[in-house]
Write a protein that binds this DNA or RNA. Structure first.
Length: 520
RNA sequence: CGGGGCGUAGCGCAGUCCGGUAGCGCACCUGCUUUGGGAGCAGGGGGUCCCCGGUUCGAAUCCGGGCGCCCCGACCA
């Protein structure tokens, strides 16, 4: 039985030209062969996508669910998301926003009201046509985003400029019927936050959109250790219904860009369609100015591709559900005191503010536990065995060994406990620094022709900065030739010391410096 | 939506060409010995072979139809 039909859900239709190209595809490699092979992960160099899939599944971040393109976020993945959520939620509240919740189902007529918006989303809508055993008079869209329902409600609540601004955020799930799906990066249903604000003036709304962009950027750097470039989207890449879209663009280890967060100035586009009006101080009736902005569970995928290595995930300490795992070395007569010591060390770390777990399972060996927790990306491991008991020491291992240090350091127990919080901070900082260096080392500047751009990308470049005339035809040509898209008109901070004079196409003067990249 | 691959125990696979009692490794359970980088030995449990129909004395295997997932492409947070 097809769930879709049974429950009266149909999908939006698409009509699009399809170019066909025959591609030889390796069968899914999977894990096979001897026991050693079976436990080995595909390396990033062998096959980056396969590495990504394996890591997500085998570190238990997520698993495929029965519905095409949908996934279960497992406790390890959800714990990371919760930590991201907690941090960002606090930042949004600090900047004056309140959380609310709007419904999942949106009348189709709402979605259809804003022209660019429908055109943008129609192909990926899932639509409820039946409920209560009957066909509905008006179908409902499962929200792909909530601008329409939210501004319709704002219109009800706003009479005068005194009711503005409205600064709301919601944490919710949304659905976009994607054809090509990828765990965390593109699933039909995903979790996100979407902020929606209404203001009395354009300037105030524009400032809001820009302020949020800064919040996102800071959040990504400080918590996920994923430093993005920021900038403004071109007309072709702009959000359906927005006047101006700001974006955070991060660089993954395969040198593809990931749009990690967007913040839109919507002008009065939605206000006019939903009659979101207010009486100004001067007594005039005016349309409000809106912004919307969001980040999603895609950030978890960004974390994986920013920091993961061939042994598994590397989770930045600030968002790691477990920051240190303690593994007792069991066996023999010393078992009881060893167990007692691990519990004692755990308790002391916990009161020092460290999220810690004792892995006391006795049916698998210590070595097996090391591999498991490394695969999951836990920042630190502490081993405590009979020899440590005698010496008052512990073995401390960081998930990524710092340059010039021994992997496993036997240090006094008291020192380990006292220094762990600082070590976590240092690790967090080093991850950010490494990611920033990687981003900058893979960014090519000063490119002045499309040939040179193509060459750079084929040579493995990540972002390529060039001048641009503002002509969308140039974007089309570059996409056709190189598969790269214009990720953003880069913000001032990231621009090259001297502005490019000419457009990369060779035709016309440059009006802005832009970043190109192949993207997720 | 076009192309390709795959569906057999929880996972990875063999068996399918050439029909004849459903197998292997890992995982799991029990016991003993182990435990500082993926433990060893012994014993054991587990299957609508994706689904529906057909051919046949007999179908994982042959034929027809369907479904699902993954990968690649065009569309997208």
């Amino acid at each position: 039985m097809r769930g879709g039909e049974k429950h009266g859900v149909r999908w939006g239709t698409r009509d699009r030209a399809v170019g066909v190209e025959l591609v030889e595809v390796e069968p899914r490699s999977g894990l096979k062969g001897s026991m050693a092979d079976e436990k080995k992960l595909t390396t990033r160099a062998e096959d980056f996508s396969e590495w990504y899939n394996e890591i997500v599944l085998r570190s238990e971040l997520a698993d495929y669910a029965p519905v095409r393109g949908s996934m279960v976020i497992r406790p390890w993945g959800y714990g990371i998301w919760e930590n991201m959520q907690r941090a960002l939620d606090a930042m949004l509240k600090d900047t004056g926003h309140e959380n609310a919740y709007f419904p999942l189902l949106i009348p189709m007529s709402f979605i259809e009201r804003e022209k660019a918006h429908v055109e943008g989303f129609a192909p990926e809508l899932a639509i409820v046509t039946h409920a209560g055993g009957k066909q509905l008079e008006e179908p409902y869209a499962i929200r792909p985003t909530s601008e329409t329902i939210i501004y319709a409600m704002y219109a009800k609540w706003v009479q005068s400029y005194r009711d503005l601004p409205i600064l709301m955020n919601q944490w919710a799930n949304v659905m976009r019927w994607e054809l090509r799906t990828r765990l965390f990066l593109r699933t039909t249903e995903f979790l996100w936050q979407e902020g929606h604000t209404a203001h009395a003036t354009a300037a105030e709304a524009e400032a809001e959109a820009l302020m949020i962009l800064g919040v996102y950027r800071r959040f990504m750097e400080e918590w996920i250790a994923m430093p993005p470039f920021t900038g403004v989207k071109s007309d072709t890449e702009r959000f359906a219904g927005a006047v101006k879209s700001h974006s955070c663009e991060a660089l993954m280890q395969d040198n593809k860009a990931l749009q990690a967060g967007t913040s839109h100035f919507l002008g009065q586009n939605f206000a006019k369609q939903f009659d979101l009006k207010f009486q100004s101080e001067a007594g005039q009736e005016e349309y409000a100015w809106n912004t919307s902005w969001g980040v999603s569970t895609r950030l978890v995928g960004g974390m994986v591709m920013s920091h993961g290595d061939d042994a598994g995930l590397v989770v930045p300490p600030k968002i790691a559900p477990i920051q240190a795992v303690i593994v007792p070395i069991l066996g023999g007569e010393d078992e009881a005191p060893v167990r007692a010591k691990t519990e004692e060390v755990a308790a002391r770390l916990k009161s020092a503010g460290v999220r810690v777990k004792v892995d006391a399972r006795d049916h698998i060996s210590a070595g097996a536990k090391y591999y498991e927790w490394e695969r999951k990306g836990v920042p630190f491991r502490i081993e405590i065995g009979p020899k440590d008991l005698a010496k008052g020491s512990v073995a401390l291992v960081r998930r990524v060994t710092p340059e010039g240090e021994k992997r496993k350091a036997f240090i006094p127990e008291a020192e380990a406990i006292a220094t762990l919080p600082a070590r976590l901070d240092a690790f967090q900082g080093e991850l950010l620094e490494a990611a920033r260096r990687r981003r900058d080392a893979n960014t090519v500047r000063g490119v002045t022709s499309i040939d040179e751009l193509a060459e750079a990308l084929d040579g493995g470049a990540g972002f390529v900065f060039t001048g641009w005339s503002g002509d969308p035809a140039v974007e089309a040509e570059i996409k056709e030739r190189t598969k790269a898209t214009l990720r953003a008109i880069v913000d001032e901070e990231f621009r090259s010391p001297s502005a490019p004079a000419k457009c990369v196409s060779g035709k016309g003067a440059s009006v802005a410096e832009v970043a190109w990249a192949r993207a997720y």
